[in-house]
Amino acid sequence: MHLLLIHCCTEFKGRCVIINPFVYQLEDISKSYEGKKVLSVDKLDIEKGKIYGIIGPSGAGKSTLLRILNFLEPPSHGNLFFNGMTVTKAGKHVLDMRRKMTMVFQRPILFDTSVYNNVKYGLAARGYAKKDITKLTSNALDEVGLTEFTNRNARSLSGGEAQRIALARAMVLKPEVILLDEPTSNLDPANVAIVEKITKRLHEKQGTTVIMVTHNIFQAQRIAEEILFFFKGKLIERGSTDKIFNNPQDDRTGAFINGEMIY
């Protein structure tokens, strides 16, 4: 009990305040489409400030999990907590929670306007002042190394550039959580490296919780501190990256990371 308190206690104005160490808590969450269950998680806690890699074969429910975490889809069953608060139906309170997180998709959808307008979109949605928007947007473009594209139409960019803009558009919001859904699977190696570097830097500088779904187990190994292995809609195993790669407990995990899984 004492240990737990130390773990969950932080100094605030000289007083000890209990804080919730988990950004997400899932209880008995499941998702079905047309009667077919695609995801079923009994219990899953995601700690704040870590980089998670979600791996597993196609159809493992990885993207569905991400969509549930981002409130894009409600679970068919179960409870989802964000920062200790229940996530229910849409409403102002859900919008406020959602604004603490953002997501980058496999195929970046950039709006048909300038790169600048794309990156500032979320800031404008949050009602930032114009001068702050200008400053934050140019900083974000600088972070991804695409300042010279500021006034270009976003639709004229290559795949790698577009994904970097999508990342800038997400990180400019300084989210508590960033959800990445196979962000590099369509990119060339140089852009893969850039995206990984930006993601790590975001985590280091701002303590952002990163949850990345990836097909690429080596990418998970390079980036993640903790791995969640999903198979057929179920969480099979979780653990530190080192443990999962060197000493997996489940045969299926071992088979997957050794590329021996047939699916």
Binding site: N70, L72, L95, Y121, G122, A125, A170
Partner: peptide, 13 residues
């Protein structure tokens, strides 16, 4: 479909 998800994840009302 494509625009909605992106706008929503960026925190649009």
């Amino acid at each position: 479909k494509e625009i909605k998800d992106t706008a929503v994840t960026l925190g649009a009302s």
